[in-house]
């Protein structure tokens, strides 16, 4: 249904427009003045100054894979691949060989690629992971010289992610 927005009735002074223009100009020049006098707090000068030490624990940097002491946490359930809005994740699942110590887990990612050109650092993969295997760590300056270099493979993801303990007890013997 069409809805007509009521237009405000303007006084003559407002209709002249010029006072408002002058007021606007005054505001902008005030900001300029304050900047010039150094009264405004400005943004950080990035490569020289860094925010790293102030980063909160929940900071959402690059997604990484973490391992437990003796096993990969990811079981290649592909939920992160499913949830990832820009489809940055690509997983090839595989079966853990019977001889392995973590045989009980049965499944692991043969390949795990995150395309960091696509990733939007939304953190949904971390949120959806039933195994607490994927975490957004604090790395934010992800650069590369080629597209291929920007695809983080499993090795790189574990390198960035490191080891975590506890949290998931499901694969321990009794449970």
């Amino acid at each position: 249904m069409a809805y007509t927005v009521p237009r405000p009735k303007l006084t003559f002074r407002e209709k002249l427009y010029l006072p408002a223009v002058a007021a606007g100009l005054a505001i902008t020049i005030k900001h300029l003045k304050n900047m010039l006098l150094g009264r405004t707090k400005v943004v950080m000068q990035y490569p020289e100054e860094k925010w790293d030490s102030h980063m909160p624990p929940h900071y959402r940097g690059a997604p990484t894979l973490v391992r437990d002491d003796d096993r990969e946490r990811c079981v290649a359930c592909q939920l992160c691949e499913f949830i990832c809005p820009p489809r940055a994740i690509k997983i090839t699942p595989g079966e853990i060989p019977s001889a392995s110590k973590s045989e009980k887990v049965e499944k692991f990612p043969l390949e795990f690629d995150i395309d960091m050109i696509r990733c939007i650092y939304c953190g949904l993969c971390e949120e959806v992971c039933p195994e607490q295997a994927i975490f957004l760590r604090k790395d934010y300056a992800i650069t590369g010289l080629s597209r291929a270099e920007m695809v983080h493979n499993k090795k790189k993801l574990y390198e960035l992610g490191g080891t975590m303990h506890g949290l998931v007890n499901k694969w321990n013997e009794k449970k």
Partner: peptide, 9 residues
């Protein structure tokens, strides 16, 4: 089909 692909894909 074991561990090849999740069915929802």
């Amino acid at each position: 089909f074991r561990f090849k692909m999740r069915v929802w894909f």
